[in-house]
Simulated assay, not measured.
Amino acid sequence: MKSSKPNFYFLFIVCFCLTNFSYAQNNNSCGAIINEASNDIYSNPDKVIKIGFSIVKESANNIDCKIKGYKLICDAYTSKRNYVKALEYLNKANSMLPQTNNAMLKIIILNKAGIIYHQLKIYDKAIQYLDQAEQAIMEYPVKDSIHTDLGKNYIVRGFIYKEEFNCDIAINFFNRGITELLKIKSKPAYSIISIAKYNKGNCYILMSKNALAIQNFKESFIAAKTINAKSLQAFANKGLAQVYTLEGNYTDAIAKLNEALVLSDEVEDLVLNQEIYKGLSENYLATSEWEKFKVYHSKYLNVQKLVKKSERESVSESLDLKMTESNNKLKDEKSKFYYFLILSFFILLLIIFLFTVLIKKENKEIALLKKQINDLQLEKRK
């Protein structure tokens, strides 16, 4: 059974959006409108996008509100899993950051950029923005206000290092993120803690440390249950089932997967259902329950087709974005080259001009010197 990375990254972004709307609510400028719109961010994102454009249009003289309007549009596209569009409007917000003195808003936008680039698997850009966000966080004067953002920053790094390097480094960052989030103990914080614990569990499976994997999946379930997050509880149970399957404890694995299936009925998550159906089919095959194996294997194959279609669309969008970035870099390099060429041409002209002037001056001095010599020779002859 594979870990459900795309879905958990999406859940992380959902939690990120929710925590940032609490910030918007406390801002008197346009927070009330944004907070109200946030209630529809996942149920009616198209409506939220329109509200975001309205905020941008009406906030021509209010940079902070305009930035938050673009971020609202970004969050709505995120809820639709259209990360390329989300990034387009986040970049508009990011380009305006030099015009604001709102340090917390800068942190939020930079962190969000890191998360979206990570979702698109453009890891170098993700790290670049996470580094900028971390620096802004460390410079923020009110230290009690930065635990959430710092915690999320560390956990996103954990996701990236898990993919790019190894689980030892990832676990270190997951732990650092969890430590920061436990200092606030808010509802969104418990969601992110559950996700981090789940990913730690997956790391421990890869490291063949089953006892630690079970411990973290159980802790992930407890954190999710604290806030009644059904999807997170289902994933935690799925993780436990994965360990039980590896240990040959098929009965307990099936029980946990059935618990996860009941929880997933309220979630309608394709990736989650795919993993549950796959797990049930594997365990029923192991226990020679052929009819149940056929039922869940068929369900797994049907959902797998839908998930692969969604993943192909996401990969296509990511490739398009990378191609666009490459083209933009190429244009920048061409512009720099042409600028250098033109500058070099003018410098060469200047050198030639100065050299010509210098030669003329030297020729004049030589001619004058010859004339003086000739004059002296004529005087001597006289």
Rank of each mutant, 00 (worst) to 15 (best):
M1H: 13
N7D: 13
L18Q: 15
A24E: 12
C30S: 08
A32D: 09
I33Y: 02
S38L: 02
D40C: 08
I49R: 02
K50H: 08
C65F: 01
C74I: 03
A76I: 04
K80N: 06
K80P: 02
R81F: 04
N82A: 12
V84A: 13
K92A: 09
N94Y: 14
S95Q: 12
M96K: 11
P98G: 06
N102R: 06
L105G: 05
I108R: 03
N111R: 10
G114D: 04
I122K: 07
Y123A: 03
D124E: 15
Q128I: 08
D131C: 06
Q135N: 13
E139R: 09
V142L: 11
H147A: 09
G151W: 04
R157L: 02
R157G: 02
F159D: 03
K162L: 08
E163H: 09
A170K: 03
F174R: 02
K200A: 09
C203M: 07
I205W: 03
M207Q: 14
K209F: 11
A211Q: 14
A224S: 09
K225C: 00
Q233E: 15
Q242H: 14
G248F: 07
D252V: 05
I254M: 05
L257Q: 02
A260E: 05
L263D: 04
S264I: 04
D265L: 10
V267M: 02
N273C: 07
Q274V: 04
E275A: 15
I276V: 12
I276C: 06
Y277F: 13
L280A: 05
S281N: 09
A286Q: 10
T287E: 12
F293G: 05
S298I: 09
K299C: 07
V303S: 05
V307K: 07
E311Y: 13
E311F: 12
L321P: 00
K322P: 00
N327P: 00
K331W: 10
K336F: 09
Y339I: 10
L343Q: 11
F345G: 13
I352V: 15
F355G: 11
A367D: 14
K370P: 03
N374D: 13
E379G: 05
R381T: 13
